[in-house]
């Protein structure tokens, strides 16, 4: 396997060719903000939080979908990136109804974490207060679309790891939402195996276990990575 070397925030990293800048950053112990990225799933590059500056390229590129190249010089933090990332967070908060105080994921929410990471103490853009629904038809789980940020991790985990493809995105633009089956109640979708992987994958409190109340959801996000590697490498011990 060939190896490429590159610099991330001045740190030299050597990593297998074909890896992403995100993986290289992890190797270099550099934290890059992200929401749609989850180790073990395919990448979509949609949340745009992980955009980085690469010397010699006049476009910002997402770390999760950009392949490493020999000699790359990557900058993951700059005033501009910080400002743009903060705007992305403000847009996300304004787009849904994220009332942290009453959310199952309060304190264990990646959206909340990212807001702190980018220094968002308030949103400069007005909140939209969309009229969104919650679906509690499943015996074990619920989905509250108010808290959904459309990262599509649930869609991918269900399709790529569980193989059930219960979820997909329907409509378009601001009306996009996660749909189960033919826009049926989740509990009515035959394909759902109630495996709970979408609960673990969800970065916010949008998909949750029904017996969790405010601040009680503790998602096990590393479990998916473990599962993928377990299958690949036949290592069943964490």
């Amino acid at each position: 396997m060939s190896v490429v070397t590159l610099k991330i925030d001045g740190v030299d990293v050597a990593i297998a060719a074909g890896s992403s800048v995100m993986q290289a950053a992890q190797e270099a112990s550099v934290e890059i903000p992200r929401l749609c990225y989850l180790e073990g799933l395919s990448t979509v590059g949609s949340c745009r939080l992980c955009v980085v500056e690469i010397a010699g390229i006049n476009k910002l590129l997402p770390a999760c979908t950009t392949e490493v190249r020999e000699g790359m010089d990557v900058t993951t933090q700059s005033p501009k990136l910080q400002d743009y990332r903060r705007m992305v967070l403000e847009l996300l908060f304004g787009e849904g109804n994220h009332v942290c105080a009453i959310c199952v994921a309060n304190g264990n929410c990646e959206l909340q974490d990212m807001a702190i990471a980018v220094g968002m103490d308030h949103s400069r853009f007005p909140y939209r207060f969309p009229d969104r629904k919650a679906d509690l038809s499943h015996t074990q789980f619920g989905i509250d679309h108010n808290r959904c940020i459309l990262c599509t991790r649930c869609v991918r985990v269900c399709d790529e790891i569980e193989g059930a493809h219960v979820w997909d995105v329907s409509q378009r633009g601001e009306f996009c939402h996660i749909t189960s089956g033919l826009d049926q109640p989740w509990g009515d979708v035959d394909a759902c195996t109630a495996c709970g992987k979408c609960v673990d994958a969800c970065p916010t409190g949008a998909i949750f276990r029904k017996n969790d109340t405010t601040g009680e959801k503790v998602g096990d996000r590393e479990k998916l990575e473990f599962l993928v590697k377990a299958r690949e490498n036949r290592e069943w011990v964490r």
């Binding site: 009332v99 207060f129 969309p130």
Partner: peptide
Amino acid sequence: ISFGDCAVTANVPGMRNMLG
């Protein structure tokens, strides 16, 4: 000083906005 989530985001009182 915007003091607390209600002042900063409208928070729980703001949830009535979804009704119109």
